[in-house]
Amino acid sequence: MSESASQNGRPAGTSASIPITGHSIGPAIGALYQLAMRQHLHGRRWIAMLLLALLPAIIALITRGTDPFASPAAMEFGLIFMLIPQGLLPLLALVYASGVMQDEQEDQTLTYLFIRPIPKWLIYLVKLAAAVTAAEILSVMSIALTYAAIFHGVHGTDGKAAQIFASCLIACAIHGLAVLAYCGIFGFMGMVTRRVLVVGILYIALFEGLFANIPFNLRIVTVIYYARLLIYRLLPFRGRLGSGVHSTAARTWNLVIRGDRHLKAYPHNWLCITMLLSTCIIAALLAAFICNNREFYVKTPVKTD
């Protein structure tokens, strides 16, 4: 350690020996999380995402208003188990997670984070956690309001309140896992490409839209596949409008249930949950590693020769 440093009261040590003491890294992490949440929950982007999250509920209200005989179960399936996981959740995750570092880099405020005593990998993980929180808040809000819009005041559902509430909770939990996985993936994408929105939308359209709906093994690399298996198994009374092989969910999602109504040939629930969680964790750790070792230019270099 340099003499000048010792004179100024720094702790003694050699290279990389300056400790990050527990009492001060905690407030820093808390402040970073709070800052990131404030960034997510204000401004035009927040309003746009809020409107997007309200869309399924608005569609439900319009449908009920225009078609008094609309089936609540069909609306539930179409909006909560088709539109939300396939359209809304990936978009929410893409918008929030892809900009974990890129937004601040573009705003040139990243410097104010990097000159603090918080390792870059931790900055990434804390900001990703805030992005996940924001996306989860909107996801839960969207699901709950859509359930309310579908079932509130519908004749014949009075005695099924607990059942509907349970379905709502299960939907929130499964979609919550999907949001986690999506956030991990899009956060990682944001770390490896500058055109993350384009790449992310292509990913959503190709993988989560196209590949997930065709009965080839390719769909095992999609998030929505595992979410659908969980939904089918945990909410059969909602996902399956018909009986046996006529299940709407199975037919729509290309799940072969002939002779295998419980999808025993497909990944088990615990594997589905593990896949969704591990996707998030692995992608987040990889991205944190990249974040720690790459440079973030906040100013375009001027050519000097």
Binding site: M1, S2, S4, A5, N8, R10, S15, A16, S17, I18, P19, I20, R116, P117, I118, P119, K120, N292, N293
Partner: peptide, 10 residues
């Protein structure tokens, strides 16, 4: 201050 600065947030 005698420390390498790259990736040394401390």
């Amino acid at each position: 201050l005698g420390e390498t600065v790259w990736n040394n947030s401390a």
